[in-house]
């Protein structure tokens, strides 16, 4: 059953990343990969809420492993970082790593707090 829920969540999560990435780029033209930054931070926030709220395993498979897992990406993030460095935007490459880690981690802790506030 969990396999099916992971599949359904991912079927939505992957195109949602693509569409969000496009929507961000349309509104904010930049070399810095804001689109990927936004989806990774958003998925980290949602997964923080789900983890903090100790949701049922089926819910976690659907929204956590499936949706958040496919919405967020490490491959896109690392390829972008390499490309920024290759193109000579070393500062942006370093900033992408630092900002993604700090904001991603901050989003998770915010999600933990939100979930614990909701549960109590």
């Amino acid at each position: 059953m969990n396999w099916l829920l992971v599949a359904v969540g991912a079927a939505v999560g992957a195109p949602l990343r693509y569409l969000t990435d496009r929507a961000v780029q349309v509104r904010h033209d930049s070399v810095f990969p804001w689109g990927t930054f936004v989806v990774n931070a958003g998925a980290s926030l949602l997964l923080g809420v789900l983890t903090g709220a100790l949701v049922f395993s089926g819910t976690y498979a659907l929204l956590g492993t499936g949706l958040c897992g496919a919405l967020s990406t490490y491959s896109t993030f690392s390829y972008e970082t390499l490309r920024l460095a290759e193109r000579g935007w070393t500062f942006l490459a370093v900033a992408n790593v630092g900002a993604s880690l700090l904001v991603g981690l901050g989003a998770v802790f915010l999600g933990f707090d939100v979930a614990r506030g909701l549960v109590q």
Partner: peptide, 19 residues
């Protein structure tokens, strides 16, 4: 790229595990 590898890798689980 967007589908298989984006769906395979995950940033959110990484961030939650670190937290």
């Amino acid at each position: 790229g967007v589908g298989v590898l984006g769906g395979f890798t995950t940033f959110s689980t990484y961030a939650v595990d670190v937290a």
